[in-house]
Design a protein around this nucleic acid. Structure first.
Lengths: 204, 204
DNA sequence: GCGAAAATTGACCATTTGGTCAAGTCAAAT
DNA sequence: ATTTGACTTGACCAAATGGTCAATTTTCGC
C-alpha cells in the first residue's frame, strides 16, 4: 500500500512525460498520439518512458485525472452567499483564465469529449453532474428571489463553458479571423462581462 | 480535363465511403482514423476503397471541402436589409439546426481546428475571414444606427459559433449533465433566443 | 569507494497501418 | 454472345506502432 517516496529523477521524468504527452494528446487525440512522439518530446527513449508509465493508457489517464480537479474548482467556488451576478461573472472570468493559461488542457478535454468521453464518462456522470446540479440549484434560487434574471440555469453554465473553452479550443480559428493586433482573451473577457450583465441583471 | 460521367456504382460507393469516413474522422480525428475502419463502415475492401479515393488524405479533403459551404451558408444569408435582432436570431437558429442535424460534420470541423487546422487554414484565413469581416461590418452598422445594442461584432459571431457548436461537439457531456428526459437542442434554442434578446435589443 | 537499487537502452516482437499490384469478376453496349 | 472497360479482391509490402526484455549504466546511501 505505501508508495515509495518518488526520487528526484522520478519527479523530473514523470513531469517531463506528462508535459510532452499533454502536447501530443491535446493536438492529436488519444488514438492519433504515439509513444514515440511523447518520448521524443520528453527527451527519453521509448523503453525508458515505459519504465515510468506502464502504457499509453496510463499516461492519458494520469493527465485526465489531474485535469478534472483544476477544471471544476472555479465552479466549486461559486458562493451561494455572494452577490449573484458578481459570482457568475467571477466564475466565467476564472474559466476564461483557465482557457488562456491552460489551452492544452482544454483541448485535451475537448478531444476526449469529441471521442465520446470513453475514458471520462464516469467522472462526467458522477462528479461533474452532481456539481452542476448543486450549483444550478443555487442559480435557480437566486432567480426565484429576483436577484438574477430568469434563464435555464444548466444551460447558463453550458453557455459559459462553451464561450470560454471556444477561445482555447478554436484558438487557431479565432486568431485567423480576428487577424493580427488583437488580444482574443482580453476582448473575450470584455464581451463575456457585458453579455452576462445584460443576460443576468434583473430589470426593474 | 473532361471528367467521365460517374456511373451509378461510382455514385453509390463514393457516397458510402464519405459517409463511413465522416463517422470515423469525426470521432477519431485524422490521425486516429484508419482506412480499415472506413472500409469496414462502407462495406468495401480496403483496396476497393482506394480504387475510389487515392489516399486517406483525399477522403478527408473531400469531406472538408463539402463541409465548408454548408457551414457558412447561414452566415452568408444574414441580410443587411432585414431586422437586426431577428437576423441575428435567425442566424443562430440555423446554426443550431446544423449542429442538431449534422453533428458529425460539426465534430469533423472541431477535430480539424483542434489539430491546428492543418488542412483548412487556407480556407479559414480566406473565405471565412472575409465573410466574417463583411458581416461584422453589417452588425457594426446596425449598432451605430442604434438598432442593435453595442457589442464587439466579431465576438458576437464567435459566441454564436461557440454556443451552437457546443451542443454538437460536447453532446455526450451535455446529455450526461442534463440527464434523461431532456431535449438539449430544444432547450438550447430557447436559451439562445432569450440570451440574444437581452444582449442585442436596444434599451430605451 | 562500494554494493544495491534505480534508471537507461539497444535489440527485438507482433500487430496495425497506408498503400500497391496483378489477377480476376461483373455489367452493359454492341 | 462477346468484348471492353468498370469494378473487386487476395496477397503482399514497408513503415509505424505499442510494448517487452535482458543487459548495461547511473545514482545514492553507507
Amino acid at each position: 500500500m505505501s508508495r515509495k517516496p518518488p526520487t528526484r529523477i522520478q519527479q523530473r521524468n514523470s513531469e517531463a512525460i506528462l508535459e510532452a504527452a499533454l502536447d501530443v494528446f491535446s493536438q492529436q487525440g488519444f488514438r492519433g498520439a504515439t509513444l514515440d512522439q511523447i518520448a521524443e518530446g520528453a527527451g527519453l527513449s521509448k523503453p525508458n518512458l515505459l519504465y515510468y508509465f506502464p502504457s499509453k493508457e496510463a499516461i492519458h489517464l494520469a493527465l485526465i485525472s489531474r485535469l478534472l480537479k483544476v477544471w471544476l474548482d472555479p465552479l466549486r467556488d461559486l458562493d451561494p452567499q455572494g452577490d449573484p451576478v458578481a459570482e457568475v461573472k467571477t466564475y466565467a472570468r476564472r474559466k476564461l483564465d483557465l482557457s488562456r493559461d491552460f489551452p492544452r488542457e482544454s483541448r485535451l478535454f475537448a478531444n476526449e469529449i469529441l471521442q465520446g468521453a470513453p475514458r471520462m464518462i464516469g467522472a462526467i456522470e458522477g462528479e461533474l453532474r452532481d456539481l452542476v446540479a448543486e450549483k444550478a440549484a443555487v442559480l435557480q434560487g437566486w432567480m426565484n428571489e429576483g436577484r438574477l434574471a430568469p434563464v435555464h440555469p444548466v444551460h447558463l453554465i453550458f453557455s459559459i463553458w462553451a464561450l470560454t473553452q471556444h477561445y482555447a479550443d478554436f484558438d487557431v480559428q479565432v486568431r485567423a479571423v480576428l487577424g493580427p493586433d488583437h488580444d482574443p482573451f482580453a476582448e473575450a473577457g470584455e464581451f463575456i462581462e457585458i453579455a452576462l450583465s445584460r443576460l443576468l441583471e434583473p430589470r426593474g
